[in-house]
Amino acid sequence: MNDDMILTVKDLHKTFRLQDGRTLNVLNGITTGIRKGEKIAVIGPSGSGKSTFLRCLNQMEVPTSGTITFKGEDITAPECNINLVRRHMGMVFQHFYLFPHLTVRKNLTLAPVDQKLMTQEEADAKALELLARVGLADKIDEWPDRLSGGQKQRVAIARAMAMSPDVLLFDEPTSALDPEMIGEVLDVMKELADSGMTMYLVTHEMGFAHKIADRVLFIDKGIISEEGTPDEVFDHPKQPRTIEFLSKVLRR
């Protein structure tokens, strides 16, 4: 295995048990990985399993079978302390999920301080630095409900960064935003990407994916049906399913 692989996924399966007893196979054997500093865009039709794939990486969903190795540790093993792993894997959600009862500052400092990784003072300094980076230093003592959607998502990104993660998982970070706010969030993500952050990005923003991704995974029916550089996947897709999907998405 390549040494600079920070995360490897082997034959990942996920089956949901529905309430009526039926089962739904969402992931049907995904094998992939990400290098340090690499940016991977994950695209695919809705219901294809791309979000589930992402959520399996930090065990928000527990995979049915398969292994995920993160920095040499098998995090699907029962003896693995997932809380310690998640410290190093930030996640940014479609709906932000800022903590509405805490100020922006507390949103950023709660996790590092509670886990005794920083003192409150250190965390405050880091919070200010990160907020400045996403252009919201003046909002540090603001309540989340008083921010616009774009500002919320930028705070959410800063919150994930406050744990100094090794990899960031973006789960459709701009899908819930008003169109005029998408740009400011993408700018922040672009800056992160340029700074060498390792990123998984599930998105429908094909233009942005094309611009920042080193590699693109096209997931369909729970498997990676096409994979390659943005040029290969977006401009010269080989699989009929990819061609069909892209023609639908890009026609707009």
């Binding site: 930090n58 928000m60 809380n83 310690l84 998640r86 410290r87 894997m89 930030g90 996640m91 959600f93 709906h95 999920y97 800022l98 903590f99 509405p100 009862h101 709660l110 996790a111 509670d114 886990q115 959410a156 919150r159 994930a160 744990m163």
Partner: peptide
């Protein structure tokens, strides 16, 4: 409380107990 609140807290490495105590219960109480 939106299940996403718990997920966001857990994704930051907080334990179930800490997430309950600092994120879920204060909102639920209110």
């Amino acid at each position: 409380i939106d299940a996403g609140q718990m997920e966001a807290a857990r994704s930051l490495g907080l334990t179930y107990g800490s997430s309950m105590r600092y994120v879920i219960l204060p909102q639920a109480l209110r």
